[in-house]
């Protein structure tokens, strides 16, 4: 049984190599293959710029939503809960469609595809960021607040200089996760026509009829992008920890 499980994909792979694969569409040694590859890779610009813009916004919004969640006042906590529960419940794809097609009808504000994508991704992610920040801030011992109070630091300074620097160190792995998640979710913005990686691949598939090869390259594009991000996050984590020692 086990052997069969390993054998099946190997056989499938080998049969794929037997000549049915049309790697010529993305063969960098031919001029058309090279053009196709460049076309696909050019989508990385929007994937990266949109994801990074969205994560920067969602981190700020997430923090601003997390803070009332830690308040002693019930109404403030209610605001936090309501925001998180509602935003978290909307599927990202639905949110993208709603922001791009629904929002203009509701408010008269028309966003271009890029900003519609950024807004939808950031909004969706902010609910998760809020929970990450809340958990991180709650993990800081009460003694840190008391020490800050005992030297008269106000709330803002306590957060800014004492609590958040420690909390952010603790949530760095989770923030890295969210960045990876964001890069992947950005592929959904292809449905409203933004020329990012997935959209480019889709367009190429339509003209070349080689979905297997083109989508395989697409998978590799995301893989490379995310491995680079992961390495970056790890490097940053090590640096932050080193500065503490």
């Amino acid at each position: 049984m086990k052997k069969l499980l390993i054998l099946t994909p190997v056989i499938l792979l080998l049969s794929g190599c037997s000549g049915n694969w049309g790697w010529y569409v993305v063969d960098p040694t031919t001029s058309s293959g090279w053009t196709n590859l460049k076309f696909m890779a050019s989508g990385a610009y929007y994937t990266i710029v949109m994801s990074v813009t969205a994560i920067l916004i969602s981190v700020v919004v997430g923090l601003l939503v997390a803070l009332p969640g830690l308040s002693k006042k019930r109404e403030w906590r209610m605001f936090n809960r309501t925001y998180v529960e509602i935003v978290r419940a909307v599927p990202i794809l639905v949110l993208i469609l709603w922001v791009y097609y629904g929002l203009p009808a509701l408010s008269g504000i028309t966003l271009n595809v890029f900003w519609a994508g950024v807004l939808a991704l950031a909004l969706s992610d902010s609910a998760f960021q809020a929970e990450i920040f809340r958990a991180g801030i709650q993990s800081i011992a009460r003694g840190q607040y008391e020490a800050a109070q005992s030297i008269s630091l106000n709330y803002r300074d306590t957060m800014r200089y004492i609590i958040l620097p420690q909390a952010i160190r603790r949530i760095l792995p989770a923030l890295g996760n969210q960045l990876v998640y964001m890069l992947k979710m950005s592929s959904l913005v292809s449905v409203i026509g933004l020329q990012e990686l997935t959209r480019k691949a889709n367009e190429l598939v339509v003209s070349e009829y080689r979905p297997l090869e083109i989508y395989t390259v697409l998978v590799l594009e995301y893989l490379v992008l995310i491995l680079i991000v992961s390495a970056g996050v790890r490097w940053f984590e090590r640096r932050m920890n080193a500065s503490e020692m």
Partner: peptide, 29 residues
């Protein structure tokens, strides 16, 4: 501002150096 406190568990700020621990109050407050 009149009352200082020393805790059982010290409650120093672990991400700041000794000097920074001491300076933050005088600087900010």
């Amino acid at each position: 501002g009149l009352v200082g406190m020393v805790f059982q568990q010290f409650n120093l700020f672990p991400h700041l150096t000794v000097l920074e621990n001491l300076c933050i109050g005088p600087r900010r407050v």
